[in-house]
């Protein structure tokens, strides 16, 4: 396998270096090389968003990007959003408002929602629905996901106000 490429990634604050075939997709590098199994494979065609990660500040579907294209990137996955002792406000709100069922879409959904709230800290319901339209959930019908995200937004905003 002489045609392997040297890839450097920073994932959730940790540097990784490895060799990868040019055709290797980012999702498989994350899941199989780095054992970061939060992002899932749901469709391999960019439709479902189960593989969503944040790459250099943008939401990216890692199932349709070569890992070589991500060389040098900073990536955040669900594993980098919170810790068991300090959950991300979205993680807390998804539990509070029953924003998940089977959990398969959840890592991608929360990762996308976190980015959405950075892009637009005070979204309307319509903006939330549009903002997560690239992430499919088969279980919840979205109503409680939307509720979870709006509630997280309002908590984040209250915290910001309190800090000022």
């Amino acid at each position: 396998m002489s045609n392997k490429m040297h890839v450097k990634l920073n994932v959730n604050g940790t540097d990784h270096e490895f060799l990868a075939e040019p055709r290797e997709l980012l999702i498989y590098a994350l899941r199989e090389k780095l054992n970061i199994t939060g992002p899932h494979v749901g469709c391999e065609t960019s439709h479902c968003g189960a593989c969503t990660v944040t790459l250099n500040g943008k939401s990216v579907k890692s199932c349709t990007m070569f890992v070589a294209q991500a060389n040098g990137a900073e990536i955040t996955t669900i594993e980098g959003l919170g810790s068991p002792d300090a959950l991300h406000v979205l993680q807390e709100n998804f539990k509070e408002h029953h924003g998940l069922q089977c959990g398969f879409c959840t890592p991608g959904m929360i990762t996308r929602a976190a980015k959405l709230l950075e892009e637009n800290p005070n979204p309307t319901e319509e903006e939330v629905r549009f903002g997560i339209a690239g992430n499919i959930c088969r279980c919840t019908g979205y109503q409680n996901i939307v509720k979870s995200i709006l509630s997280a937004a309002s908590e984040l905003n209250s915290a910001k106000e309190a800090a000022q």
Binding site: I36, G38, F94, C102, G103, P107
Partner: peptide, 12 residues
Amino acid sequence: KRVEDARFTQGK
């Protein structure tokens, strides 16, 4: 509240 959610929301 669901006991399953801790692992699912953390990608575990």
